[in-house]
Write a protein that binds this DNA or RNA. Structure first.
Length: 802
DNA sequence: CAGTGAGCGAGCTTCCGCTTGACTT
């Protein structure tokens, strides 16, 4: 048995380190945090110093038992979790949970995985830093208080199942406010004048506000002469970007490879686990001396000495904790990997970026030519750029969010002052000012990082959360045609051209939803301190003070909680329910008011008053139409569903819009209406076609049925064959040929296997619905006696509970 | 997956930050 037990957070790291330490050391992983506040309640004792009640997560119990056993057998336990707030807390939780004796427990830290660094760490152990642990507890408790006190308010005041938090709510706010800004953006146009002189062109130093001014200028240039008034050549250089952090990797993978941030992280995780790259959740741009050495060697071998320039970068990110290196290949000499295309491409990106960061600056020659116009004070400017030495550009060029790709070379002819130029033509083109760009997943991460909000491990999950809660939606927009005017001067004549361009197209951008907008409105109104973009930075400062030992963590929390909790209670008491209700107008056919508002199941339109005796119609807002922009006409359209499409083989086909979009109902079963069809206009022929296609697809799903057991089917699913019985699904054990299974085999499988959790929920929902339908049918006959039609629904709801 | 939307109001949602696999129909 090893004398020493070393505990690190990641199993891949454990494997590497064990190799460095030799046989006296056994290295195990604790897989991140081992205890946390239970999800069920607040689990913070407000009355007693905000004492947190931690619990070991169920899935960590066996792991803890293993660690505990190994710790007992070891002479010394080395807690080697990351060198940051969270890492220190993990070490402390380990010492608590494993009941480690202080005498045989040592805390070590290293921020690069090299033998030297680790041996050095072993030489210099320290004690647990309880101030740092307390800073983490403050962070944890604050987040729990904010999340678990505000979220229930949203359930009461807006809609169930919503959430609020220090990070996610600010992320939503950014998206909402950007959209707001875009909505109020006033496009301004001006005229940009470009003169073409044969082998190069130049832009006028001023722009004209109106077409008339531009025309006057062009006309006045008809007989003007053009001459070089100055030529300047300036040497310039461009430096490589720092190697990747989590956030910059997400941005570049998004721009260059089109990856969503979650995909980038999944692929990077695989590369890490296979030992191709260093750790992928980091905020550090630092490279180990080993990495710098490897890069230098690689550059010297491939490109020569001129291309090598070892350098180290310093982090400018707010609140960076730098427990790891930058993301880089583990072997700089591994220029490429093979296999899955996503991994190949991501590795390539990481390799190039890391290598380029150690390469020489690119040397560039910038040229500017000024051209004077006879009789005018305005002048033309031509700019050129020639790369004299490519340096790091040989390997890698960073891309920008705004795709003004003036990339590559633009060579200007060699001219001298006084040279006369012959104008080929001059074009004054109407150009438009642009609003700030909408956020992509990656650019939102970038913004959050700039504000110091969130951590590398949470960027991707935060994006997933706000998408899952439907606060924001990732969408494409087709863009629209915009006409513009251009004036062309050629051969002394000015000609007016009417042209058009496509503008405003969006790809995978984040748009706020109606719920997102309303929730944000509510939070900004009642919780402005937490919604402030500087809130996280402020509390981080206080966490730092706690870590320095200058502040007590529970006093900091107390100072925050007192006004915060009062605000929660006041809001619960005094604020109105948020529905975003708006009167759209009066339905000319019925004379009833038509409203739009947020209902329990999302945005909806309503015709008539809920308090009145008359009939009230409801309809879900059609996808793609927001509460803000819906018109009375559009709303009235939505009330036209459900409608009867026609009769087929004696049964009625109806078209309606449901929770999951438009559908056809025929003989009690449902068929989705694809986007290409409109439920309002779909005809009988097309409806029958869709119903037949669905039936055929259902047929294909069936592998085998048994006459003796009509409820049992062997079906073909997305993940291979499975058995369906009484609406519950069962896995077929590996190695069985589904088509050869007998009824006996199936029954045995049913007895042995647990039905999938999902199908159990579904079956439960179906049986609830059945009970409900029966009771509705029953009360429907009773209802004839009662005047009001509410009794049926009421009974239905009570039975649903049972 | 396939209704709904007020009203009584039971009992359910929820946070951020560390880490990976087991499993999906």
């Amino acid at each position: 048995m090893s004398k020493n037990l070393v505990i690190v957070e990641s199993p891949a790291k454990a494997k590497t380190i064990e190799k460095f330490l030799g046989k006296d050391y056994h290295v195990m992983s604790c897989f991140g945090h081992i205890r946390d506040l239970p999800k069920r309640h607040l689990c913070i004792d407000i009355e007693h110093g905000f004492h947190p009640e931690y619990e070991i997560q169920a899935d960590k119990k066996t792991l803890i038992a293993q660690l505990s056993k190994a710790a007992k057998e070891a002479d010394c336990v080395w807690l080697a979790s990351d060198e940051d707030r969270e890492g220190e807390a993990i070490a402390w939780h380990l010492s608590q949970v494993l009941k480690l004796e202080p005498a045989k427990t040592k805390r070590i830290v290293f921020n690069e995985i090299t033998q030297t660094a680790i041996l050095n760490a072993i030489e210099h152990p320290r004690d647990l830093d309880y101030d740092l642990v307390d800073a983490q507890q403050a962070r944890r408790v604050l987040d729990r208080l904010v999340g678990y006190e505000i979220s229930p308010l949203l359930w009461r005041k807006v809609r169930p199942n919503l959430s609020a938090g220090r990070v996610q709510s600010v992320a939503v706010r950014l998206v909402v406010e950007r959209e707001e800004e875009i909505k109020h953006f006033k496009e301004k146009s001006s005229y940009k004048v470009v003169a073409s002189f044969g082998n190069f062109s130049a832009e006028l130093d001023t722009r004209f506000q109106t077409k008339e001014e531009a025309r006057k200028f062009l006309e006045s240039c008809a007989s003007a002469s053009f001459s070089v008034s100055g030529m300047e050549i300036k040497p310039s250089k461009r430096s490589p970007a720092a190697p990747f952090t989590t956030s910059t990797l997400q941005q570049e993978a998004s721009r260059k490879l089109g990856f969503p941030v979650s995909k980038t992280m999944v692929v990077a995780q695989q590369l890490y686990e296979e030992g191709f790259i260093t750790y992928m959740r980091t905020d550090s741009v630092n490279l180990s001396s080993l990495a710098i050495g490897m890069a230098k060697e690689q550059i010297l071998d491939t490109y020569g000495e001129k291309y090598s320039r070892p350098r180290n970068f310093s982090t400018k990110t707010k609140g960076a904790q730098e427990a790891h290196e930058a993301i880089r290949p583990t072997q700089m000499s591994r220029t490429a990997i093979s296999g899955d295309p996503s991994r190949v491409k991501l590795y390539d990106l990481i390799w190039k970026r890391a290598l380029a960061s150690q390469m020489a600056d690119a040397e560039i020659e910038k040229t500017q030519i000024n051209i004077q116009i006879s009789g005018h004070t305005e002048y033309f400017i031509a700019r050129g750029e020639v790369i004299l030495f490519d340096g790091f550009l040989k390997v890698y060029a960073e891309s920008k969010d705004d795709e003004e790709d003036d990339k590559g070379e633009k060579r200007l002819p060699v001219l001298k002052q006084g040279d006369m130029l012959k104008l080929e033509h001059m074009l004054a083109r109407e150009v438009f000012s642009q609003h700030s760009p909408r956020y992509s997943e990656a650019s939102l991460v970038k913004k959050l990082e700039e504000l110091g909000i969130g951590r590398p491990s949470t960027y991707a999950p935060t994006i997933s959360t706000i998408l899952k809660r439907e606060y924001v939606a990732k969408e494409d927009r087709p863009g629209h045609i915009r006409p513009y005017t251009a004036l062309k001067l050629k051969d002394g004549q000015v000609e007016e051209l009417h042209l058009q361009e496509n503008t405003g197209a969006e790809k995978a951008k984040l748009f706020p939803t109606d719920v997102g907008i309303l929730v944000n409105q509510f939070l900004v109104k009642y919780f402005s301190p937490i919604m402030d973009y500087g809130f996280t930075a402020d509390v981080e400062k206080q966490f730092d003070e706690i870590a320095q030992g200058d502040m007590k963590w529970n006093e900091m929390i107390a100072a925050f909680y007192q006004p915060f909790h009062k605000q929660v209670e006041d809001t619960a008491q005094n604020s109105e329910k948020v529905s975003g209700e708006r009167l759209l107008g009066v339905d000319p056919a019925t004379g009833k008011n038509v409203y739009v508002r947020l209902g329990r199941f999302g945005p909806m339109v309503q015709r008539g008053e809920t308090q009145s005796e008359g009939k009230v119609d409801f309809a879900s807002l059609k996808k793609g139409i927001s509460m803000e922009e819906v018109s009375l006409e559009q709303a009235l359209e939505m009330f036209k569903l459900p409608r009867t499409v026609g009769i087929y083989e004696g049964e009625e086909i109806t078209a309606a819009a449901g929770r999951f979009g438009p559908y056809l109902k025929y003989k009690g079963s449902f068929v989705s209406i694809p986007k290409t069809d409109d439920p309002l206009v779909i005809d009988l022929d097309r409806a029958v076609e869709l119903i037949k296609a669905k039936a055929e697809a259902e047929q294909k799903k069936v592998i085998k049925t048994f006459d003796e057991e009509p409820e049992l089917h062997i079906l073909n699913g997305r993940y291979g064959p499975y058995i369906s019985f009484e609406n519950k699904n069962y896995k077929i054990p590996k190695g069985c040929d589904a088509s050869l299974l007998s009824l006996e085999d199936c029954r045995r499988i049913l007895a042995e296997e647990q039905p999938s959790a999902r199908s159990v929920r579904k079956a439960a929902a179906l049986s609830r619905k059945k009970v409900k339908d029966e009771s509705t049918a029953k009360t429907a006959s009773e209802k004839k006696k009662t005047a009001k039609d509410t009794a049926g629904k009421k009974t239905a709801k009570t039975t649903k509970k049972a």
